[in-house]
Design a protein around this nucleic acid. Structure first.
Lengths: 221, 221, 221, 221
DNA sequence: GATGAATGAGTTTTCATTCAT
DNA sequence: AATGAATGAAAACTCATTCAT
């Protein structure tokens, strides 16, 4: 559904052409970030968006702001998917989990979660969105556990991790093939979530530990 | 275990000090690429390696050559892991599969597979290594299937995809936490490989299709 | 005379300040190329032009482009001189030939014809200009021959060769002395064109042969 | 005749292989200087000579020394040509003049006279050679004048200028074509030297003036 | 609001030169 | 004597950012 226009909340309304430019810039940034990393040249992004580099700067005072917005839009997509999962969880909670992941896979072409080389979403909006996702997924998982539909040792962090992984760009592979492989991966993973005599998992870092590093299961540096 | 010195085949032997420099450059490149992407500044890499930038250029005529070698070393690690998996497969083929993936997770701090923004390994050595990995994994899988130890619809490409995903850098998350999450992911995934009434998988792109794009289950652009 | 502004055809009109910068860059390049060869440091050229090196790159994407334009302007000067020669040929065709050469000598301080180490003008504009010069000179020569004012075996290529030679920089000699020596050379050469029982010339390469190598009587490599 | 091996006088005798290397370096330098100017990369010259760059440095402590030697060899060729001209002058002094110029044209592929961008031959050997050339040519001219074989207002500097000009590289033109054009140019020029009612020449800079700038009719900077 | 233009600060790349083998 | 290797310094080139139109 996603009727929300990403990233335009809490801002003075823009003139129509300016709004269009802003949307084009964000779209160009999403693909450029996926292809080139968040260090992608800003004038390359402006070029792809069909606007002048100065126009980009008018909308986003620096690279950081642009990255923030793109990541924020990504988080919004995840939150959206989590909400839908909760909606459908009562019928079939495990299917809801799978639906969550496949929904993300469905958006993977334009989904930028914190990426290599990129600064990270630290603003209040980002924190707020991230804080909203975890409980939604935990609620889905709780329901699933109570129905015996899922192994008990899975946490929302495993889902977030999986979502982040299957949305990573796979450079030089056509989008269709990437999506097919990601889909198969999700299907197998979700089969692994079923309570079929699972081998117990090793301990997870706590949500708090990970949150202290601020982001969707990402590592590095 | 990894007794191979990476990337030193088919080359006139280097003087001892030069070989040491070369190894330091590659090590520095591996971590820099994981942290900053393959667009990481070369002088930063030289600095970390403790050599002059011109020395780096002496060994690797351009960024491309450096990336190639790093990726090639990554492939060699994967091939190595696949070989070990085949060795242990007769005892417990599914455990061998898991061992393959966990081995990669164990090396994830220094493992660079084709990455965002990066050119891609296309040289004959890369093709040769890639062509060596697939049959090894297929042999493991065949054994597992014949023992009924695994769902029948999994292919080596699913394993490659999974290996590539769980080795992706997770920027801003400490290595320990990243490894823990990756390990849990692998454990669940492998549970999903068991032949417990699995739901059939959607079709996979063929090896040939993917190979045409030349790389370990990676996408983009 | 020379009312043409060099190198500004077929381009979107530049802002006034940008056009000024462009002209200064070209002027600086002309003298730098004559002094240092076409490998002259671009930042030196930018410095002489009083602009930032990036501004130079904005106008000329690489050294090649800058050299092209400078050479193109040189060709334009030659074409201009040839046109004037044709204008005055009816009165005294041999004087017109001499005027052509002396005109070039007069501009030699800022005239850059294809030079050592330099790539060469191959674009359509260069070809067009070169193709325009030859017939003009041939027409002058035809008139001179019909009047018996010149030895019959001279071709426009001899004139082009001579023009190119006498315009070559003479490093370390002050411009005045260089011009004096070049002028004397032209005077003697033109005396050698008179039909005073000349010894026949050895065969010339054809225009086509030379044109296949694309440039005003230049050699090398 | 040129039985002289250029540039090996007054030096401790080299080991045979070292002498060979030195000759190869000089040959490579001659062509590289003609193609790329005297700023040609030294390792390029070493590469063409088939020796290591450090070997080049062992023979020539810096670029300057290499250029000096190459130019010196060029002067030696000119002096040689002048000597021959004087030998043959008694039979036909104008033919001797032409022979001088054509001799230079014949060597133009390997003849490097002070060139654009190049430092300049200032050593005692250079001065000595230059000082030797002028009187030889003047003697030829005096003989020609006394026989009425030449216009009276030509000086040795005109000959030097002409020699320098016709030996300039003509980049991108095959050597054969360049030589043909240069030959024709010389033939016409020499016809212009004949005492056929010549128009008087404008004044020449004096030998002293030019010598103050140290070189064979060259200008610039 | 949008853009062409300019610039300072990198980053990449090359090259002369020296050193150790 | 010759060479592989290393390096500092320069030059080529790119890019984020600001300014004037």
């Amino acid at each position: 559904m996603a009727s929300r226009t990403p990233g335009d909340s809490g801002r003075p309304r823009l003139r129509a052409d300016a709004a269009r430019n802003r949307a084009q810039i964000l779209a160009a940034a999403r693909t450029a970030f996926r292809e080139l990393g968040t260090a992608a040249p800003l004038d390359e992004i402006a070029r792809r968006a069909g606007v002048n580099i100065a126009t980009l700067y008018r909308r986003f005072p620096d690279r950081e702001a642009l990255v923030q917005q793109v990541v924020l839009d990504g988080f919004a997509t995840v939150a959206d998917a989590a909400r839908r999962a909760l909606d459908t969880a009562p019928q079939d909670p495990l299917a809801a989990v799978e639906g969550f992941l496949l929904h993300l896979v469905g958006e993977r072409d334009t989904l930028v979660l914190p990426l290599i080389g990129g600064p990270v979403a630290t603003g209040p909006e980002a924190v707020e969105l991230q804080g909203r996702i975890a409980p939604l997924l935990e609620e889905v998982l709780a329901l699933a556990r109570s129905r015996g539909a899922i192994r008990p040792d899975v946490t929302h962090m495993d889902l977030i991790t999986t979502g982040a992984l299957v949305c990573r760009p796979m450079p030089y592979l056509p989008a269709e093939q990437a999506k097919a492989l990601a889909t198969r991966h999700v299907r197998i993973f979700v089969d692994g979530l079923r309570p079929n005599d699972p081998r117990p998992l090793p301990p997870s870092p706590t949500h708090r530990e990970v949150a202290a590093h601020l982001h969707l299961g990402s590592e590095g540096d």
